[in-house]
Design a protein around this nucleic acid. Structure first.
Lengths: 216, 216
DNA sequence: AACGCAATTCTTGTATACACGATTGTTGAC
DNA sequence: GTCAACAATCGTGTATACAAGAATTGCGTT
């Protein structure tokens, strides 16, 4: 537990939302949360305020907080922005790559290779996350990295769903290969283009997304 | 004043920070703010929590809140991300432009023309803002629009400073013209490219930025 | 039986009180 | 004279109390 209860509660409730423990549209009762976590309403309210500012919940004046339900279209829009940000990170990475970043990308990439070969979708989910984080870091822009990480967290549940689709694992990994090649070749434009395509949910990927969201 | 004090305080303090009334690095004393606004510490704390979540201030446990000082390099990174997001908005606008958006872009664009011709940098600052907002809206992606607006707010003070530089007014306006042409021609890639160049602070624009930040 | 109004109950919004940790100033020793 | 330790003070973190608005339920009327 973090040293102050408010911070801890924020993370706790955020995780509960992102892991779908609190479903979209659900009402978050301050008193219930307070007793559940064994604290008073004050830190609960502070946590809710922060989640509202981040955009995970909506606080309607005098009418309580509800978990925001993005809906397929909005999730698509979020992936669209994510693709753009990752594209930028990739293009910066290609230009600024240093030894440490190169090693981090290589390491996470080969871990992806292993879990993809093993067909282990849960392992790949985790390794894939680390691979993308390595690219964010390689871009060497702290602000961009923060933005990427924040949006990545929010899209986490949907990414997981997407990996379950068809032969997405091998497709995803071969895209990774091309991305790594472009970055290591210093080809920023190509890295940007490939990452946009890799992250975005164009075409049939969108219907897959909608289907998996409905199935939940 | 909004119907609940917390919300109102958040906006109030946010504006005070963005208008440089609270300088970067300055300590925000909860009690002082409370008495200043004539409320108790509770809503002040809630406002500060939200500003912390947005990234405008930093709350160090047991040690109070300070206004974040971005520093030239981080502001550059923020403009870099802003350029990317605006580029996406522009490319979407070119593809999805409808009649209402077209009129909004045309209207704000011609207001920019007038204030640029008049050499009125303050008027241009405002009209320019509306022009960019029209493009965000024309992209027809609510999430992207929100992200653009939020980042735009945070960069507001620096944009204002930049307009004071050299013959930036006419340069800016001629760039607008090319952007409008590309969007109206439905050329998404060109609109993206031009907007990236227009918003970013590459080359000498960066030194201008640093100089204006230092002068403040 | 259904609709509307009123009263009660429940929940949120704000204030205040209290406790704990951090910071600062003072005093004493080396 | 300088540094360190201790004490006092100040500010944050959490709990609780109180006020005000919203939702719900029950009763009365049509």
């Amino acid at each position: 537990m973090s040293e102050n209860v408010g911070r801890w509660l924020r993370d706790e409730i955020e995780n509960s939302i992102l892991s779908n423990e609190f479903s979209p549209g659900e009402r978050l009762d301050e008193t219930v949360l307070a007793t559940r976590f064994g604290v008073s309403r004050t830190p609960v309210r502070e946590a809710l305020m922060q989640l509202d500012a981040i955009g995970l919940i909506e606080i309607r004046p005098r009418r309580g907080a509800i978990v925001i339900d993005p809906g397929p279209h909005r999730v698509y829009e979020m992936f669209e922005v994510m693709a753009e940000l990752e594209g930028l990170a990739g293009s910066l990475a290609a230009r600024r790559l240093d030894e440490a970043s190169r090693e981090a990308v290589t390491a996470t990439h080969s871990r992806c290779e292993q879990s993809a070969a093993a067909g282990d979708s849960d392992a790949y989910y985790y390794d894939n996350e680390e691979f993308h984080k390595a690219i964010y870091a390689a871009g060497r822009s702290e602000f961009l990295e923060e933005q990427c990480l924040q949006l990545h967290r929010r899209l986490r549940p949907y990414r997981r769903l997407q990996l379950r689709v068809r032969n997405r694992l091998s497709t995803s990994f071969s895209e990774h290969c091309a991305i790594v090649d472009a970055i290591f070749a210093g080809d920023g434009d190509e890295a940007r283009r490939l990452l946009r395509g890799h992250v975005g949910v164009q075409g049939e990927r969108f219907s897959d997304l909608v289907a998996s969201m409905a199935a939940r």
